[in-house]
């Protein structure tokens, strides 16, 4: 349920950036959200619809690009996603090391009407 707060912070930034760019309207918001951020898309959209009526952002498309959590196996020198109920490499079954992938929580760009 932290999507409520995430959406308020997100809209604050979006409205500020849109105004700075001289937007009449925001048409689309492009986000990158990693699996590790623990954000539920439906919940994010729910708060988006709740917060945006009457604003510059009303009716905008919310595009979310998802990235996944990945691990690196030092033995096999490969990267892999979680496959079972542990963090082991699918090839050699030793425990790998978390990489930075999947931790994004970013506003990438806006599409605006100027």
């Amino acid at each position: 349920m932290h999507e409520f707060s995430v959406m308020s912070y997100l809209l604050e930034t979006v409205e500020e950036e849109a105004r700075l760019a001289g937007a009449n309207k925001v048409l689309a918001i492009n986000l990158v959200i990693g699996e590790r951020a623990g954000i539920v898309d439906d919940s994010l959209r729910f708060y988006f619809d709740m917060f945006t009526p009457g604003t510059l952002v009303e009716g905008a498309q919310l595009h979310v690009r998802r990235t996944s959590m990945r691990f690196h196996c030092g033995q096999c020198q490969c990267d892999y996603g979680q496959v079972g109920d542990d963090f082991c490499c699918p090839l050699c079954h030793t425990v790998g090391q978390l990489t930075a992938d999947g931790s994004e929580l970013l506003i990438e760009s806006l599409e605006i009407d100027v």
């Binding site: 995430v6 950036e17 760019a21 048409l27 970013l106 506003i107 806006l110 599409e111 009407d113 100027v114």
Partner: peptide, 18 residues
Amino acid sequence: SVNLRTVKIVKNILASND
């Protein structure tokens, strides 16, 4: 008519909390 422009931002959503 719509005068479309893309604004690149690349900013952490929680930047103001940070």
